[in-house]
Amino acid sequence: MSQILKETRLMFNWNMRMTLRNPVWPIFGLIQPILYLLLFAPLLDNLGNGIPKGEGLNVFTPGLLVMMGMFNAAFAGIYILESLQNGVLERMRVTPISRTALLLGLLLRDVLVFLFECAILIAGALLLGLDPDPFGLVLLFAMLALINLTIGTLSYGLALAVRNQDAFFQTIQFFVVPLQLLSGILLPMSLAPRILRNISEANPFTHAVEAGRYMVAGNSGDSEVFLAFGLFIVLTLLAFNWVRGSLHKAAA
């Protein structure tokens, strides 16, 4: 066990050093959410219809963070595609390092970078008038980390499974956009017709966004919060197990 921790730390440091040397992606990943915050969030204040006046940012920011966690992590697998191409993954697989450590070293780096992005975005939202419950905010960070972990793991798994850029991007487009639209990220699902609302109930991200709104509003004890954490813990474990298996088998 301590061996895996040691190896995970080694790979985490290595991946982190790579990110810091060329931080284009993390910066790039912030641009779109910042634009939403500046150009879209102000519209919500005057929408009425389920959003109390002046509460626009409190409703919208959790959704925006969930969206960022989803999108940024969805493309994490690009690194695996590159590593299959340039032989890095294969070279590492012939060393005695544990597959779990290889994967954790990537995921933990991703989560840390993502939480840093979240902090920047929340700082921006606070300046614009976000008024969160402090404990709820801490809890929100934990949930966002879990979401990022789930999607990141699935993205690495997808890259290992399809091994090809086109198929990788198509699959992500196929899933991410409907999941986003049906999760009430941009506008609450309470605005949706009943059929869409029912479908969105089956979408884990709907519950994550709802839970995020409860946390920011100071209702962290709501059952929706427990549901979201439960869902994403289970999803993370399932995804991690799947990817670790395919790392064992992966052949280029």
Binding site: E7, L10, W14, R17, M18, R21, N22, Q85, N86, G87, V88, E90, R91, M92, V94, T95, P96, I97, A252
Partner: peptide
């Protein structure tokens, strides 16, 4: 030791960093 056709060094890192990591992986 195994040297694949594709090589396997991390392109954005220096040669020395690659070698040191490889040593530590062993």
């Amino acid at each position: 030791g195994y040297v694949a056709q594709a090589g396997g060094s991390e392109p954005v890192m220096t040669g020395r960093e690659n070698l040191i990591l490889q040593g530590r992986l062993f």
